[in-house]
């Protein structure tokens, strides 16, 4: 019986796919090794361990007196301001995003370069560092929360309009055709056919963006654009670890609660 069995044939791989596989691995490893060269790994403060300990100590012994003292500079007021910045920023960006989304959506009856140019603009907005935008707004309206809200409002357009335009692309274009056939203008099509069917995607993506904006709003303070980031950087600079602890706890709780609420609403929408 054994004699009838064939020998194991060699693995059926073509030279090309093998070359791609090995080439991919070799290039990846070479890039990783290259990236480890020339980085200054020294210069770590000798007190690093001690400070880490102090921060953890602060996390477990937070400065509760900072939570609320009615001065308007306390944790609750600052977190509330952070939320307001995120809300306003998201609101502004949701409104600006709609026309941008129509521009960048690659639908039928539209020249290829029109949507492509819109996509490039959106990529540019997305890559434009939020922090730099915040600094530009600080020059225009002075330091504080308004600069943060405006910067978020503009920056979020890059991502939000892209998500909206993807939603537009995935819509059935039958209703749009019906409106056109009845003599509707392009604007009629947008208002009567596209917007109603787009609404769930707009709400759900905006809520998602709000989650992201809450996180962003909590760091904008690092450059003076309002919110909880500013007291955090002050506390870090003055080594008030228990205050760092309470602020971190505050941010974590805020983000978890907002994620939870927006997740619950989005689940209901689907």
């Amino acid at each position: 019986m054994d004699t009838t069995m064939k020998k194991l044939p060699p693995k059926p791989v073509t030279a090309k796919s093998r070359a791609i596989k090995w080439g991919g691995w070799i290039i990846s490893i070479a890039i990783i090794i290259w990236s480890c060269t020339g980085i200054d790994f020294g210069g770590i403060k000798p007190t690093a361990g001690q400070i880490t300990g102090a921060i953890f100590n602060g996390l477990f012994h937070p400065d509760w007196s900072y939570v609320y003292n009615g001065s308007g500079e306390d944790l609750v007021s600052q977190l509330w301001q952070t939320l307001c910045i995120a809300f306003l920023g998201t609101f502004i960006s949701a409104i600006i995003s709609v026309p941008f989304a129509f521009w960048a959506a690659n639908t039928r009856h539209k020249k290829f370069w029109v949507s492509e140019s819109g996509k490039i603009v959106l990529t540019f907005i997305r890559s434009f560092p939020e922090i730099v935008l915040a600094l530009m707004f600080i020059k225009a309206v002075g330091p504080g929360a308004p600069a943060g809200a405006l910067a978020l409002g503009l920056h979020s357009v890059g991502m939000l309009a892209m998500l909206f335009s993807e939603a537009i692309e995935s819509l059935d274009d039958g209703p749009a055709e019906a409106i056109t056939a009845a003599g509707g203008s392009k604007f009629n099509v947008a208002v009567f056919a596209t917007m109603p069917d787009l609404m769930p995607a707009i709400v759900s993506n905006t809520l998602y963006r709000f989650d992201v904006s809450v996180r962003s709003a909590s760091v904008l303070g690092l450059v003076g654009a309002g919110g909880i980031g500013y007291p955090l950087i002050i506390a870090l600079n003055y080594r008030q670890w228990s205050r760092v602890g309470i602020i971190l706890l505050g941010i974590i709780v805020m983000v978890v609660v907002i994620d939870w609420i927006s997740g619950a609403i989005r689940k209901k929408l689907v």
Binding site: I39, D40, F41, G43, I44, K45, A48, I51, T52, I55, I131, R215, S216, S218, V219, L222, G229, L232, I233, L236, R239, V244, L248, I251, I252, V255, V256, D259
Partner: peptide, 21 residues
């Protein structure tokens, strides 16, 4: 996951000092 990247950055700067690490 809740902590934003820049916040992590500023904490690590406080811990290990200024630099790429």
């Amino acid at each position: 996951r809740t902590i934003p990247d820049l916040l992590l950055g500023s904490i690590f700067v406080a811990v290990v000092g200024i630099g790429p690490v």
